[in-house]
Simulated scan of single mutants.
Amino acid sequence: MPRTGRPKALLELTIEEREQLVRWERRRKSSQALALRSRIVLACGDGWSNADVADQVGCSTNTVSKWRARFVAHRLDGLVDDPRPGRPPTVSADQVEDGVVTTLESTPENATHWSRAMMAQRSGLSSSTIGRIWKAFGLKPHRDDGFKLSHDPLFVEKVYDIVGLYLDPPESAVVLSVDEKSQVQALARSQPGFPMMPGMPEKRTHDYVRHGVTSLFAAMNVDDGTVIASTHRRHRAIEFKKFLAKIDQTVPEDLDVHVVCDNYGTHKHPAVKTWLGKRFRR
């Protein structure tokens, strides 16, 4: 008698199962393993033998037999991987939540922020575990940043005006962002530098001579990035008024000037306000 081989399990697909298998087979986000299993079951559902299915999808007959039997026993759920064996997690979700909440909402005694060692001592977890929890939630207790809230009752209106100037400058006008940098050191190298030559970089001495400090005033045109600048020994209202006069002389007379600056006291000095009050353009 001819050998018929091991009898294979009868596999019949419902309409819903076939539609789901087709989606798994064609979906780009499906894993390759799930797509292969879906093709195997679809071919088996069409009545193909294990050997023919193996040749069609490019796998062994043992693989086809395994997933045929798994599908017959558990249907679609049988195509999903079983949980992999391994050590169960030693850190519970409650411990993770406690560590995150404590880091965010409290500070340790006699310290400004939590360190990994202090949090490990408090929670009973290891320092490396605390580090992994902080990294997963993007927590960096050792870092801080500063901010300032304005108490100006017209703060919102002023923000709208300034942002509007930056994003949509008016026609026939120049918008300048103005600020000053004080205590700029005027340094010079103690020896002349050697120029660059083929195969040799430019050389300069590591030491320098101090020539005091200066204050840099700068106004950047927010439209084209050009800068009007000047230096002064100090940064009082007198120097700021001189810088405004330089802006007035540099910008063509047919253009209005909008100057955006911070709330520094020099910018609001009565002498500056008087000078601005005498100008025909604003």
Score class of each variant (00 low, 15 high):
residue 155 F to A: 12
residue 156 V to N: 12
residue 157 E to W: 04
residue 157 E to A: 13
residue 157 E to D: 12
residue 157 E to L: 14
residue 159 V to S: 11
residue 160 Y to H: 12
residue 160 Y to M: 14
residue 161 D to T: 14
residue 162 I to H: 11
residue 164 G to P: 07
residue 164 G to F: 08
residue 165 L to G: 09
residue 165 L to H: 13
residue 166 Y to Q: 14
residue 169 P to W: 11
residue 170 P to N: 14
residue 171 E to V: 11
residue 172 S to Y: 08
residue 172 S to R: 13
residue 173 A to V: 05
residue 173 A to P: 00
residue 175 V to W: 03
residue 175 V to S: 00
residue 177 S to I: 04
residue 177 S to M: 01
residue 178 V to F: 10
residue 178 V to E: 08
residue 180 E to P: 08
residue 182 S to K: 11
residue 182 S to I: 06
residue 182 S to H: 09
residue 182 S to P: 06
residue 183 Q to S: 13
residue 183 Q to A: 05
residue 183 Q to K: 12
residue 183 Q to N: 09
residue 184 V to P: 03
residue 184 V to D: 00
residue 185 Q to G: 00
residue 185 Q to V: 00
residue 185 Q to W: 01
residue 186 A to G: 00
residue 186 A to V: 13
residue 187 L to V: 07
residue 187 L to H: 03
residue 187 L to M: 09
residue 188 A to P: 00
residue 189 R to T: 05
residue 189 R to I: 02
residue 190 S to V: 11
residue 190 S to D: 14
residue 192 P to Y: 09
residue 195 P to M: 02
residue 195 P to D: 13
residue 196 M to H: 09
residue 198 P to C: 03
residue 198 P to T: 08
residue 199 G to R: 00
residue 200 M to Q: 07
residue 200 M to K: 10
residue 201 P to L: 00
residue 201 P to D: 06
residue 202 E to Y: 02
residue 204 R to D: 01
residue 206 H to W: 03
residue 206 H to E: 09
residue 207 D to T: 13
residue 207 D to V: 08
residue 208 Y to V: 11
residue 209 V to Q: 07
residue 210 R to K: 07
residue 211 H to I: 01
residue 211 H to W: 01
residue 212 G to C: 09
residue 213 V to T: 11
residue 213 V to D: 05
residue 215 S to R: 02
residue 215 S to W: 02
residue 216 L to F: 05
residue 217 F to Y: 06
residue 217 F to W: 00
residue 218 A to G: 06
residue 218 A to T: 12
residue 219 A to C: 06
residue 219 A to Q: 03
residue 220 M to W: 08
residue 220 M to R: 15
residue 221 N to W: 04
residue 221 N to F: 06
residue 222 V to P: 04
residue 223 D to W: 13
residue 223 D to A: 15
residue 223 D to I: 15
residue 223 D to Q: 14
residue 223 D to P: 04
